[in-house]
Amino acid sequence: MISLNVNQKNYRVDADPNMPLLWVIRDIIGLTGTKYGCGVAQCGACTVHLNDEAVRSCVTKVSRAEGQKIVTIEGLSKENDHPAQIAWNEENVPQCGYCHSGQIMSAAVLLRENPNPTDEDIDAAMAGNICRCGTYLRIRKAIHLAAELQRKGSASK
């Protein structure tokens, strides 16, 4: 049995320690917002936060995550109201939507570490997340908006 903390909830899962965290999260714990896209850390669809970092869960063995803090898209905010989520909705970013759990999880780390990212910063942070529908232009716009929302939010606090 492996102990995991996902979205502030403790789980004990019976899984091969070599099983990628992605499949534990999806198939055992049942949180399907995190997606499979490539299996080799090329596309970012499987991005989750492991100790606040945007790890690719498809290549992360569940054993690495044991006892660590895992956050998936379902746990990023309570009301779909992380600044990135609000901005994604405001800018109508998704098309098919399949990649956007991963996109938003990556964007959240960028926004935490850089409250005012430039286009170049966004490219540097987001080039690991593929969107086959090609919504990149809107991802950029949404991240700028999210940064603005975040600045306003922290200013009002």
């Binding site: 991005t47 945007a54 290549v59 960028l110 850089n114 910063d121 540097a124 987001m126 690991g128």
Partner: peptide, 8 residues
């Protein structure tokens, strides 16, 4: 950011 070496 989201592209730290150890993410992959």
């Amino acid at each position: 950011y989201a592209m730290k070496c150890s993410n992959c």
